[in-house]
Amino acid sequence: MGEHVRGGDLDIWVEQVGEGPDVLLIGGLGDTVESWQFQLDGLADRYRLTAFDSRGVGRTAMPSGPVSVEQMADDAAEVLRALGITSAHVAGFSGGSIVSQELALRHPALVRSLVLQSTWPVMDPYMRTWVLFVRWLVEVAPSERAFLEGFYLDIYTPRAHNDGTVAEFIEEVLAFPHKQTTDEVQRYIDALVDYDTSERLGDIKAPTLVLAGGSDATSRPTLCQAVAERIPHARFEVLDGEAHQPFQEVPDRWNALVDSFWRVVEAGWP
């Protein structure tokens, strides 16, 4: 069971499981704690994992005014401090990877290591156009189901669409009671679309693993690699055949990769 913790002027929904070194999981667009279920279930025997609903997502309210990556990074820092966690392995995907980058830049002492899945330093024209497409799609789609079916075409592999995995995900989202409004989705996108960390990534000191889906059509491997090349000593791996969210499609493989990385960090990053 989760609880709200106070972070600045925000009540942030948090769930925590397991025992061991601390891990903070940061989701992407519209993704709640539940998006990390395969990690909460699969890694809790080795780590104490904390996941949370970002501002405007799930059970965390959206304050008035514009949303910024800096605010969301500070929210993540407030979650750690509220729980008495002095340092954690931080894993973020998609928009959550950008928040994770900013967390490591703004609050370096809190970040033991970084795992950045499906990330980028700044959106190139292709990705920016795709994200703006999602921004208007959420407004004009004839139903929530239609939006999800269109959005997920570029998020999950054809394999996941054809074997019923995506259909199951859609039913879970439709049944979830804490809906995100169109305005909240668009404000989150607005915070990310022109965000640029490319000139500051060299300041990140935390051991970093950058992961790309080899078939990701959005934050493509070239964008992920550009992040890895800018962070000193970062490791870069491509999961061949996978799309934007391999931590959900092939969780055992993903969990093994990050577990191996975290074990190296705990043993003393070379």
Rank of each mutant, 00 (worst) to 15 (best):
W269L: 13
A109K: 08
S118Q: 11
A212H: 01
F247P: 04
G96C: 00
T32E: 12
W262H: 09
F147L: 03
W120F: 10
A77C: 11
Q225E: 15
L223Q: 11
T86C: 13
R46W: 05
R145A: 14
D75N: 13
L43Y: 03
E139K: 12
I204V: 10
D194C: 08
Q117T: 12
L40H: 00
L239F: 10
F261E: 12
V115E: 05
V79M: 06
G8M: 08
K179T: 14
F169E: 02
R6D: 09
V140K: 08
W130F: 14
A91Q: 14
T197K: 07
A104I: 02
Q71E: 15
D252F: 10
L148H: 01
D45H: 13
L239C: 00
P158H: 07
A226I: 07
V185G: 01
Q245M: 14
T157V: 08
A228K: 00
L29R: 03
R263N: 05
P63H: 11
D22E: 14
T218M: 09
G28C: 02
T157G: 08
D75Y: 10
P251Q: 11
G56F: 05
A88E: 02
L110S: 10
G28S: 06
N255L: 00
V90I: 14
V140A: 06
D53W: 02
F147V: 02
V250P: 05
A167T: 10
L40P: 07
D45L: 13
D203T: 05
S118R: 07
P125H: 02
S68I: 08
V69N: 04
E19K: 15
T218K: 03
M62Q: 06
G84A: 04
R200T: 07
F247Q: 13
R220S: 09
T157Q: 11
S64W: 08
A256T: 14
G7F: 01
N255W: 09
K179N: 13
G56K: 06
T129V: 04
S97N: 00
P232H: 00
D41L: 12
R200S: 07
A160F: 12
L148T: 08
P270T: 01
V173P: 06
T86L: 14
H178F: 11
R6H: 12
D45M: 12
G20I: 10
